[in-house]
Amino acid sequence: MQPPTSTPRRALLGAAAALAAAAAFRRPARPAPAAADAAGPSADAAGVSAGTHPYAGAGAALRHPGLVLPQLPHLLLLAYDTPGAAAELREVCERWSAVLDRERTALTATLGIGPAAAGRLGLVTPVPFADLPPLPGDRLDPALGGGDVLLQLTGACAQRLDALAAALEVPGLVPRWRRHGYVPAGPAGQTPRNLFGFKDGSANPGPAEGQWIWLPSGPCAGGSFLVHRRIAMDTTAFAALPPERQEAVVGRRRTDGSPLGGTREHEDPDLYAKTPEGRYLIPATAHIRLTNSRLDGGARMLRRGYTYTDGPGEQGLLFCAYLRDPALFVRVQERLAQRDALTPFVEHRASGVYYLPPPGPPGTALGASLFGPARYL
C-alpha cells in the first residue's frame, strides 16, 4: 500500500502533539500535494516524514497516530454499546469525524470495535475476532470492560479531553464505561514509570518491528487490535519488599530499567546468565522473563500503560496492548498466571478486546472501512 501524498487531518493533530511544547499545541495545516511530493512520502506539516515515526513502515500515513506517535501524557477511554444498525453507527462515526476535524488542540483519536458489534452489525473486520477467553486469576467486573464501540483519546490536557468527550456525545450510543489515565511526570523522552516505581514499556517493539502490530493484508491492512486491561496494583505490599526483592520480582533495576545482569534499559535481557553459584541472574519467576518475546517466536506487542486512581485503595494501571493477534496476549497472560512473582501484587479487574480499523485517506470518516467501500465526507 502506497502512502497518500498528504497526511490525514486527524493524523496531523497527533503529529503536532509529538513535536511541540504542550503550551504551544496547534493543528498544522494540511500540506499541498506538490509540497508533500517534494518532501517525500507522507511528509507532515511539521516537516517530519512519517517514516521517522516508530512502527511506521510502508503506508504509515494510513496508520493510527494514537499508536504511531510517542505516548501522550493523558488518556480518556470512552466505551459504548450500540443498539442500532450499522447505518446508525456509520452516522455516529461521521459525526465524530466532523467534530474532530474542528478540533484545534493537538490530540489523537482511535476508534475500536468490540467483537459482539462486529458480528451483529456485519462490519468489515478480521476473522476470527472474539472476546478473550477466561484467564486465570481474573477478577473482572463486566460493567467496567467490554463494549461495542471504544474511542481512545490521548492528549496533553485532561480537561481538554473531557471537553472533547462532551462535544462527541451523539444519539445512537449508550455509554457503558469511561476511564481516565495519565503518565506520571518524569524526564522527557524517557520510559514512563508505573506506581511500583519501575519503568513500564522498556521492551516495546523497535521501529523495524511493526509487523507485530499491523494487520498485513486484505481489507483490514493497516489495522490492529487493542487489548485493554484495568489492573489494580497493591502498592503498599510491593513497597514493603526490600529493593533487591522488588528487582528480582520485576527482573530489572529500579534505577535505570536495565535488565538484571545488563547495563542498558533497552538491551535484550540475557535469560541464560547465571551467578557463580549457578542461579539465574533474572529469576525463573521474574516478570520480564515470562513476558520475553523469545517464548513466542519473537512476536511482540506495543504496550502503553497509564496510571489511574479512584480514591484510597483503588489505583493501578490502564494497560493497552496493540498487536496484530490478540492470541499473543492470551499466551503471555497464561504464563504469567502460572509463575509470575508479580501476581500477588496485581489484580485484573476489567478487560476488553477491540479491532482498530485502519484510518482512511484524507476526506474519509473515522472507521469508514468498517462499512465497505470508503465514502468521502
Rank of each mutant, 00 (worst) to 15 (best):
residue 346 V to C: 14
residue 24 A to Q: 13
residue 38 A to P: 03
residue 219 P to H: 04
residue 134 P to Q: 00
residue 312 P to R: 10
residue 375 R to Y: 08
residue 212 W to V: 05
residue 216 P to G: 06
residue 96 W to V: 05
residue 132 L to F: 05
residue 174 V to A: 11
residue 142 P to N: 00
residue 54 P to K: 09
residue 268 D to V: 14
residue 94 E to V: 07
residue 56 A to W: 05
residue 360 G to S: 00
residue 11 A to R: 03
residue 1 M to A: 09
residue 325 D to M: 03
residue 249 V to S: 06
residue 244 E to S: 13
residue 232 A to G: 13
residue 41 P to H: 11
residue 319 F to I: 03
residue 47 G to Y: 04
residue 115 P to G: 02
residue 349 R to S: 06
residue 118 A to L: 05
residue 221 A to L: 04
residue 368 A to N: 06
residue 31 P to E: 09
residue 1 M to G: 03
residue 36 A to C: 11
residue 181 G to D: 04
residue 339 R to K: 15
residue 182 Y to H: 13
residue 147 G to W: 05
residue 224 S to T: 15
residue 162 D to E: 15
residue 97 S to Y: 12
residue 317 L to E: 09
residue 346 V to W: 10
residue 161 L to G: 01
residue 141 D to R: 14
residue 264 R to A: 09
residue 186 G to H: 13
residue 117 A to R: 06
residue 142 P to H: 02
residue 349 R to D: 06
residue 358 P to Q: 03
residue 241 L to R: 10
residue 359 P to K: 00
residue 173 L to A: 03
residue 182 Y to A: 14
residue 254 R to N: 07
residue 322 Y to D: 00
residue 155 G to R: 03
residue 169 E to Y: 04
residue 137 G to Y: 11
residue 219 P to V: 07
residue 338 Q to N: 05
residue 107 L to P: 04
residue 5 T to N: 12
residue 209 E to T: 04
residue 100 L to M: 12
residue 12 L to N: 02
residue 179 R to Y: 04
residue 64 H to V: 01
residue 304 R to I: 01
residue 219 P to G: 01
residue 172 G to T: 05
residue 297 G to W: 03
residue 44 D to I: 02
residue 97 S to H: 15
residue 25 F to P: 07
residue 30 R to Y: 01
residue 234 D to H: 13
residue 111 L to D: 00
residue 130 A to N: 14
residue 243 P to R: 11
residue 298 G to S: 10
residue 172 G to Q: 03
residue 33 P to Y: 10
residue 139 R to A: 15
residue 51 G to R: 14
residue 88 E to Y: 01
residue 111 L to G: 01
residue 219 P to R: 01
residue 316 G to T: 14
residue 260 L to Q: 00
residue 359 P to M: 00
residue 159 Q to T: 07
residue 372 G to H: 01
residue 360 G to W: 00
residue 326 P to K: 04
residue 259 P to I: 07
residue 126 P to I: 09
residue 14 G to L: 01
residue 330 V to F: 05
residue 369 S to D: 02
residue 137 G to V: 13
residue 268 D to G: 04
residue 314 E to K: 08
